[in-house]
Structure formats: structure tokens, C-alpha cells
Design a binder for these strands. Structure first.
Lengths: 231, 231, 231, 231
DNA sequence: GATGAATGAGATTTCATTCAT
DNA sequence: TATGAATGAAATCTCATTCAT
């Protein structure tokens, strides 16, 4: 059985020129497979993605795939690592969000980055959120990535509206839900997110999630008038 | 080939008690299959859901499944129809959202309904959005259902902030994205959405999406500081 | 298990009027099933014929089918019996075929009958010949029916060309093959066999199979110039 | 879905010996499957033939079958193409049939070839004639093959008995019916067609179908004495 | 007599993975 | 390194037959 070397630490560089050229070729192949994997996953989703599709797009043989990845899930994991790194950078890059106009600009800029990451990795992110792959380690990778972003959001919201820690957590979750889903919809429909749209989103987010509470009147009890969801 | 009777208009109830009892048994079985389908789909998602799982949950034989549904997709379609009906009701039930406190309550109540529908049909909705099933008609069913809700939201947002029609559409999309995704996260993690959480969401939505614009300062150009998404 | 009464001797007539009416109804149902079976078999052939098709054509339920026939093969057997009777009559009706013009007329008349039988039972006959049904008894039924006809043909050919018994047998086989297949083609294409066509066939058969040998010249050895049928 | 390579034009032979040997293995397998298919079909007929049987005979796995053929029908189609080619050759090889003794020899030789083709492809031919497979293209393939032979026969018969074009067509159909069916019977019973038998058939065909008309007496009207074929 | 719902054995097809070259 | 043929477990679907009413 050819031992899959996927995701292993790089082997020591061989001395011969021939060996080095092979190595380079191998890297190119692996790269082709990763890119092919991303595009196939994007098109079909994890379950409907076939190894067959990946190798066809990458223009390599079936056997070659298993030279670089232990299995389908392993390819997915490799992509997920790439994605998690970018997500961590994203989390680290969110600075203080001022309740005033500058805060809106800070948000605007950060949101632009967020959407850019999504554009590349929407499938991965989708799969994380929906837990489609039955792999503990992979799920943890995703949780951690999202956890970092959530934490950053909680901090910034808490800074902007001090004294409502628990509420801040809920808001952070809702905010992440919104922008993540919104990004997905934009990507999946092939839409272009222009400057004006980014402005609007930034405004909504800024005012909805970061603004201080106004004085509220007495709220009457909420009563649902509809009954849904048959047993 | 035994013609699948799925998705047909219900046949007229026969007059004799004996005939009706036979019919009834069939209906019960079909119902059991639909419910089983919903729960299996919820657990595994469309692609990973096995007909085998469905019939085991419904406690019927394999053959029986194909007595009521032409195939897996057909079961899915039936569930989708049920869901689309509830979604249409949801869209129709959204009334005028006042910019003041009453508007917040209107939203709160409607959001409670929205989340209730999601609790039942999260899988269906997810599949619609992600277009997992390669079926045109099914996709259209979903688009129409979501279109109705979006339209309702656009109308209400436009009423609340007249003169920004295009902006209203973007806001409606973002709002739907948020609550849809938020509902999904809540359902998929088995969380309970309590009154306080509902309050917060309603507040965020009300202020972020329905409030009038405050005077804005000069916005400096947004510049992304990060580069994501390798080619 | 409801004992199938198919192909059994008729039970004693019940005394009550009610019982008699039921009996009549039963016969009608059985008849409907037989006819439906014939038409379904004609359309699809034995293997592709579904019990489902038969009961739909006969407008009875699945259960009812098994009230009258033990299984699919049993229905087929019943039809085969009907057919074998007609075939026997056919065999018995072939009289002396004169080498002269009257013989041609005798043949013509008999061929008309032969084609008529085929029109009704082509499927059955086809199945016999091709031995499609894995049932010994059924096959024997067919062999016997065909044997009778072959025997009659052999006798008549032998009468017409005495002293070539073995040759007569071969001729009989070829003749039967021809008219049987010809009948099939006519039936399966929905063609009408008119008087002129019948004339031609009668002529060909008369001259080809029943005429006395003319003096033959020296026959050179037959050498095939083609090679067919790859290993 | 792995694209079935069945029925494609043969790929250009690769230059390296290594590459060719790989190709060779695949070709051998495909060949084994075709041969297995032919024998299984011959034994059971199209509908009763199981892919399972084919792969067992070919000694390959289930999956391998679908590597070479899209499905059962596709295997059948491939065989049919092979058969149609041989049939076309057969049609082209029928030369002028003299009304005298040489004509009989021409026929004899051609019939030997005809029977040889049948020996190999009886199942295919049977299915064509009986239209067992619900595939338009396949049926057309068969019609064309048979059409060619019929046309050749019509030409030869018309040459031998000029001035009866319409009659020639009927005769050609009857002749083809006879020899086709006769061949089937011979093959299906495992009989050997010896020289004497071939002589007899050639004689019958020659005299029955190609000889000039003798003077005929007045034919009395043909009246059927039997009534067959219950409604 | 008749119905129609239910069954389950068996057939077809898919696809991730292995292996010889 | 790379290939492509082969595998087989698992999934989907069919249909003759049985059974409760």
C-alpha cells in the first residue's frame, strides 16, 4: 500500500537534482488537487463531490489522488486548515468599533475582508457550520475558527455597550450569522458586492449591534398569532 | 411500474366505512414516512440521508416507501410543499412595523413565528438555500417561498424608511439572511430561544433595519488591510 | 392463504341464487384476467409483462389476481392451454395436399387458418418456441402442440413426395418455421394479410415444399466466401 | 459519474509499450465482457439476463462491468453493432441467383454464411425482431440491418422473376422469415446443420422463391373451415 | 369475492479505495 | 511519481406475492 504522505511534515530535501525536481512536480500536483477540490466542493457540496470530479478537474489519475491525500476527507481537511488560518487573521484584525462614524468605517473595512475570505472558502465554512462531515477534529477546527471571530465580536460589542455581557454574546452570534449567511447568498448567486451595498451593511450592523440602547417604552407581551410546524 | 401516488390531490373519501378504513391505513403510513423523512433529513442532510434510515424510523418495509414516493427526491419534494405553505403564511402575516416601540413588538411576535417554522423545517430550508438537490422545480418552490418573505420584508422596511427602495431590498436580504441563519444555528445546536434572547433579536432588527437614518458624518474611503482567498 | 382455484375442475353448482350469481361474477373476472393477460403479454412479452399491468388492464385488484391464478406463470399456462387446443384443431384439419392446383388451394385455406390462430396467440407461441418460461410442463404443452402440426405436415409432404421421409421432416420444420415467423412479423407490424399475399405464400409453399423433384444437374461443392461470428 | 467508454471510437494506440500494455488489459476485459454478454444473453434472453451472470462468466467484479458499459442495454447495444456489421456484409455478398442449378449453389453457399452469422448472434437478432428492448436507436439498427438483407433478396428475386416487383417483396419477407426462424430453431436446439440439410433448404428456397411461375389453373375461392382466436 | 396495503428478496448501479505496472 | 484498471460494499429501486379487512 502506498503510504499517503498527505499533511505530513515535509521530508528532508533530497540531494540529487532529480529528486528535487520530482519534489517540485509533486508540489504542483498537490496544489492542483487542492484547487480542484475547492472548486468541486464549491460546486457540489461535500457529499455530492466525487473524487472522480476532483481528479478530472486536476487532470490527474485516481491513483495520484491517494498519493497526496489519505481519502476524500483528508483533502477537505487540508482545505479547512488553509481556511482556518485566514479566519484567525480575520479575528485578529478587528479593532475597536467606535459608536460614532469612525466605528462604522472600521466595520466597513473589516466586513470587506470578511466577505473576501468567504468568497474563497464558502463551501468549507458552510460545511463547518452544518457539520456535514462526520469528523471530530475537523469540526473542532471549525469551531475554533468561528470561536475566535465570535470572541472578537463579543469584545468589540462589549466595548461599545459595556455592562451587557450576555447580550453581547447573543448579538455577536446573530451578527456572525447574518454576515456569514449574507456572504453565502452573495457568493452562491454570483452577485457582486458593490460599495453602496457594503455601506448599507456596515450601517445596519453598526446601528443594530453596536449602538447604545435608546430609552424603551413598556413592551406588551409578545403573542404569536400563527401556529406552525406540524408534529 | 406502480404509479406513485405521492403528491397527488387526495382522492375523494369513499362512502363505506370499510373503504375508508383502508384509506386511512395508507394515509397513516404516508404520514409516518413524511415524519420519518423530516427527522432523518434533519439529522443527516439530504445527501447523507438514506432511504434505509427513513423506513427504519417509520417502521415500514423498503418496498412500502416506494409505494408512496417515487424516490428519495419525491419524499423531499412533498416535505418542501408542506414547508412552502407555512412560509407563505408567514409572509402574509407580517404587518406594518412602526418605527416606535410597537413596531418592535410586532417584529418580536413575527420573529417568534419565523423561528417556530424553522424549528420544524430547518433541513428543507437549508437545502433550498444551498440548492443541494438538483431539481429545478424544487428550487423554484423554494425561491418562491423565500421571495414572498423577502417581498413582505421589503414592503415593511420601505414603509418604515420611505424613499430608499433599493436600499430596502438589500436590507431585506441581509435581514432574512440573518434570521434564517440564526434560526439554523439555534436549531442545529439544540438551543432554546428564550424570551430575553427574542427581545434582543427584535431590538437589533428593529433598530438596525427599520429605524430612520441618523445624520451621517463624512465617511473616509474603506480600505481593506488584509488579503484573503488564495486564487 | 386463499387456495387458488385456477385450472381446477368446476365445483358443483351451489343451490342458492346468491351463490350462482357470485359464480358468474367470478367467471367474468377470470375471463377479464385472461384477456388482459393475453394483451399484456402480447405487448411486452413474458418477462417484461407485469402482474401490475395485467390487473390494471383487467381493472381488478392485485389480490384478486391471486384468487384466480396461483402466480404469473399459471395465468400463462391457462392461456397456453387455450392455444394448444386450437393448434391441435389446426393439425387435424390439414388434408391431403395434391401436387397439382387443388393442392395449392388446400394449402391456401389451411394457411389462412394458421395465420388466424397466430393472430390471437402470437405471444404464447413465441414463448413456446423460445422457451422463455422455465416451466417443464408448459414447454411440453408447446412441444406437443407443435409436434402435432409438424407431424401433419410431414405426413402431407411425404404423401406428396414419397420415399424421402427424412427430407420430409426437414422440410416440415423449415415450412413451419417460415409460416410461423411470417405470421409473427405480420402480426407484430400490424399488417393485414390480403388475398394476393395469401396466394403468393400458398404458391411458394406448394412449389417449394410439396412439388416433386426436377432432374438436377451435378452440384459443385458449396464453399462459403465469408467468415462470420467472431469467437 | 465515471464516463463509460463503451461504444467510443478506439483511442489512438499510445506509443510506449508500457502504456499499450495497460490499454491492452482493458481491451481484454471489455472483450471478455462482450463475449460473456453474448453467451448469457443467448442462454436467458434479454430480460432474464442478469448483469450478475455476465460478470460471473467474465470473471470480473460488478464494478468493472460499469466501467465498460453504462448499463445492461449498453452492453447489448455494443453487441448489436457487431452483429449489424456482419449482417451488412451478408447482404452485400448475395450475388445473382440463376434460375438454373448454379443458382441453387449460389444460394446454398450464401445460406451457409447466413446460418453461420445466426449461430453467433441469434439472441441479438431475436431481440431485434421481437423488439424486446425499448430503445429506439437499437431498433433502428436492427431494422436497417434487416432492411439491407431484404433489399438484397428482393433484387435477386426480381432478377430471377422479372415483372413481379410487389410479389418479390412479399417473397423476400417470407424467405427471410423462414431462414431466420429456421436458423433460430437449429441454434436453440443445439442441432448441427449438415450438408444434406443445407442441400434441402437450398433446393426448397430455390424452387419456392426463385423459380419462374408454371401455368396455373383456375383457383377456387379459399374458405376457412375453422374459427380461431377468441376475442 | 374483492380490495389495496405491505412485504422482502433480488436486481441494478455508484463510488471510494486499492493495486499492478 | 503517476497511471488506469479493478474491486466490493453499500445504496437505490422493482415487483411477485401475501395478508388483514
Amino acid at each position: 500500500m502506498p503510504a499517503p504522505r498527505a499533511n505530513l511534515a515535509p521530508e528532508p530535501a533530497p540531494s540529487s537534482a532529480q529528486g528535487r525536481s520530482l519534489r517540485r512536480r509533486g508540489q504542483r500536483t498537490q496544489h492542483r488537487l487542492l484547487d480542484a477540490g475547492l472548486s468541486v466542493l464549491a460546486e457540489h457540496g461535500y457529499h455530492a463531490a466525487r473524487v472522480d470530479d476532483v481528479v478530472r478537474v486536476a487532470k490527474v489519475s485516481h491513483g495520484t489522488f491517494y498519493l497526496y491525500f489519505a481519502n476524500k476527507e483528508d483533502l477537505f481537511r487540508s482545505l479547512a486548515v488553509r481556511c482556518a488560518e485566514d479566519m484567525a487573521g480575520l479575528a485578529a484584525s478587528l479593532e475597536f468599533v467606535d459608536p460614532g462614524p469612525e466605528g462604522r468605517e472600521t466595520l466597513r473595512s473589516w466586513l470587506a475582508d470578511f466577505f473576501a475570505v468567504h468568497r474563497g472558502y464558502s463551501v468549507i465554512i458552510r460545511s463547518w457550520i452544518e457539520n456535514q462531515v462526520g469528523d471530530r477534529e475537523l469540526a473542532r477546527l471549525g469551531s475554533r475558527a468561528f470561536g475566535k471571530i465570535t470572541k472578537a465580536l463579543v469584545s468589540r460589542i462589549d466595548e461599545a455597550r459595556p455592562g451587557h455581557r450576555h447580550d453581547a454574546e447573543l448579538r455577536a452570534a446573530a451578527l456572525l450569522a447574518m454576515i456569514e449567511r449574507f456572504a453565502y447568498v452573495v457568493v452562491s448567486r454570483g452577485l457582486e458586492l458593490d460599495e453602496a451595498a457594503l455601506d448599507t451593511i456596515a450601517t445596519v450592523v453598526h446601528r443594530g449591534f453596536f449602538a447604545a440602547d435608546p430609552p424603551v417604552a413598556d413592551p406588551p407581551p409578545a403573542v404569536s398569532r400563527l401556529r406552525f410546524g406540524r408534529p
